[in-house]
Design a protein around this nucleic acid. Structure first.
Length: 572
RNA sequence: GGGCCUGUAGCUCAAUUGGUUAGAGCAGAGCGCUCAUAACGCUUUGGUUGGGGGUUCGAGUCCCUCCGGGCCUACCA
């Protein structure tokens, strides 16, 4: 029994996430959370929407809604979809919550007290027509280097030259197209990350067991060029956490908000408070997860995220926590993922390319997607979704191997013994031969799950399912029955117990089908098995069961072709 | 430009960190079974590990080089 705090990178509010986003953070985090709970650990699994920033404002404007209203609606949509995918968050919060506002301001105050905030007056491009300062990316113009006429203020996409917005020829607002731009002075707060470079470096050096992807990105930022740079943590926007020093006003920073990347990770903490508040619990309830002086010393904290999020989680957020001088829990392990590509290109939210969470659930239930995505998680390199591969994996693994096992066993039993676990006989060593490696694979499965080796865990689980078929084929109760019904009964008894065991161990991957298996076996016993001998006796003779509906249906070629063409273009 | 990752069977991926004959699943071929969702099982074909060079008793693994793919490069989040 241990205590595990798990967070998934928080999805941005401006639209529905695609399957690449899902498999890069929320889904593997859910897999891990479900597994640890099933093994009896105490788990707090948190996620939220990341709501602040320019893109949210623009998306709201496009939808013709006030930004707070837009975010509230989109939170509802994302919450519904995460429920649809069976993501088992203990709390799905919002970075715009009152809790996060207070905590973000608190951290800023502490950092200021520690001398880790400096004020910088800088020049930024202001668009009079848009009535806002424009982030570099939202300024377009002609590249001075190559002449490309849609270069952005941070970089020319055509010749990849890094630019300053003032380098652009004929600059215009990418939002409105207005050329009525001017450079204005504005004051911002910078987090002095450079002052914490040594501390962060030493901390990263300790993390020898982290994925290479995680540490190499962190090291790159720490050591590249002049080393870790200070980062601006405020913006000239309306939508965000107002800049304050704790409870107090921050002279000179009126009307400004914190940068999303400052308040978003703090939401991991605030979300725990949202969780406690919602249930009427005291602060102690969430502080025991987050404050090492209040019980979080023995918590193991694991974060899940796509590789694009790594710098903020390995450097900026730890800098915030360390710099506060307060005993907040630092992350113990960061599991990062590469990208999932879609049929030869990238999934893209902005371009509407690929399959999005809502569309996926319209087509097929969550388990189908969960199984494919997790068993193909982009752990070592980018991986690719194709409809053919999806169809083949789902049909073979879920319908043929697992679903059909449950079907053939329960239906055979019903026809020969009725819908009751049959009694009599004994399964001898010869009959057990085909289950030789079962315990070993079961242990390997657990080891992979604990190590968050997602694809290896999926392969081990599939292998356990396959062993059921191999064994059953060898034991052949349909043949044995003719000569020795008692022996056939014993075989079927073990087979039915295997279904229950599959229901338990498969639950982190395919929770709905697992639930269906357990309820068909009419058992509440979800205790995690560690050996075949435990499995064999869970359901005793005379225990009733029902033949379940087919656990999975197969994807027909015509359907696949239909989806293939339907999702070939971009989402409108 | 710089940095990091990556290239293994038709496809998706392994390979105990330098150790025997590079392994699985899918797809393909053959056989078997008839409980089951035309499902299951057994056997089997298939690789100059992107190309070239080097180190080593030994290289998929380390070094160099070339070719291809991807990501990051700090104001998208």
């Amino acid at each position: 029994m241990a205590r595990h705090l798990i967070t998934s990178a928080i999805p941005y509010i401006n639209g529905i996430k695609h399957l690449g986003n899902l498999v890069g953070s929320q889904l593997p985090a859910d897999l891990y959370a479900r597994y640890l709970r099933a093994r009896g650990h105490e788990v707090l699994f948190l996620c939220a929407t990341d709501e602040h920033g320019t893109p949210a404002e623009l998306a709201a404007a496009k939808a013709g809604k006030p930004v707070d209203e837009y975010c509230a609606e989109m939170w509802g949509v994302q919450k519904e979809l995460s429920d649809g995918f069976r993501l088992s968050f203990d709390k799905f919060g919002r970075s715009s919550s009152a809790q996060n506002r207070a905590l973000t301001q608190h951290f800023a105050g502490k950092l200021a007290e520690a001398g880790l905030i400096r004020e910088v007056t800088e020049k930024q491009v202001y668009s009079k027509a848009d009535g806002r300062f424009l982030p570099d990316r939202y300024i377009e113009g002609t590249c001075p280097n190559c002449g490309y006429d849609r270069a952005r203020g941070d970089q020319c996409e055509n010749c990849t030259k890094q630019l300053d917005p003032t380098d652009l020829i004929d600059p215009r607002s990418a939002i409105s197209g207005s050329t009525d731009l001017e450079v204005r002075e504005t004051k911002h707060l910078y987090l002095r990350q450079s002052a914490m470079r040594d501390k962060l470096n030493a901390w990263i050096d300790e993390k020898t067991d982290w994925p290479v992807l995680t540490t190499s990105i962190a090291r790159k930022w720490l050591n590249d060029g002049d080393g870790l740079q200070d980062r601006g943590i405020t913006r000239d926007l309306d939508w965000g956490v107002p800049v304050k020093k704790g409870d107090e006003d921050w002279p000179g920073m009126e009307g400004k908000v914190f940068y999303v990347w400052f308040d978003a990770p703090i939401e991991y903490i605030a979300c725990a408070k949202e969780w406690a508040d919602e249930q009427g619990l005291s602060d102690e309830a969430w502080e025991r997860w987050w404050r090492t002086d209040k019980g979080a010393e023995d918590v193991r904290y694991t974060q899940f995220m796509g590789k694009d999020n790594v710098p903020f989680h390995t450097l900026s957020f730890p800098a915030t926590i360390m710099g506060s001088g307060e005993p907040w829990k630092l992350v113990d392990y960061i599991k990062s993922f590469n990208y999932l590509n879609y049929d030869g290109g990238q999934f893209s939210t902005s371009q509407g390319r690929g399959v999005f969470m809502d569309q996926a659930l319209e087509i097929l239930p969550a388990d189908y997607w969960r199984w494919w995505l997790l068993s193909h998680a982009p752990e070592n390199s980018d991986s690719e979704f194709t409809w053919e591969n999806f169809q083949a994996s789902v049909n073979k693994d879920l319908a043929d191997v697992l679903g059909n096992f449950a079907s053939r066993v329960t239906k055979f039993c019903r026809s020969k013994f009725g819908e009751t676990v049959p009694e009599g006989g004994e399964v001898d060593a010869a009959i057990m031969a085909k289950l030789q490696g079962f315990d070993e694979t079961l242990a390997a499965y657990a080891t992979h799950m604990e190590a968050m080796e997602v694809r290896k865990a999926a392969a081990a689980l599939r292998s356990l399912w396959a062993m059921g078929n191999e064994w059953l084929q060898d034991a052949a109760p349909w043949a044995v029955f003719k000569e020795d019904p008692a022996k056939a009964a014993a075989i079927v008894r073990l087979a039915l117990n295997l279904i229950r065991a599959y229901g338990v161990i498969s639950a982190p991957f395919i929770p709905d089908a697992s639930h269906a298996m357990l309820s068909a076996m009419k058992t509440e016993d979800a205790s995690w098995p560690t050996s075949l001998s435990e499995i064999a006796t869970a359901l005793p003779a005379d225990h009733d069961f029902t033949v379940p509906e087919n656990l999975f249906r197969k994807i027909a070629d015509e359907e696949r072709e239909d989806w293939q063409s339907r999702f070939a273009g971009v989402r409108t």
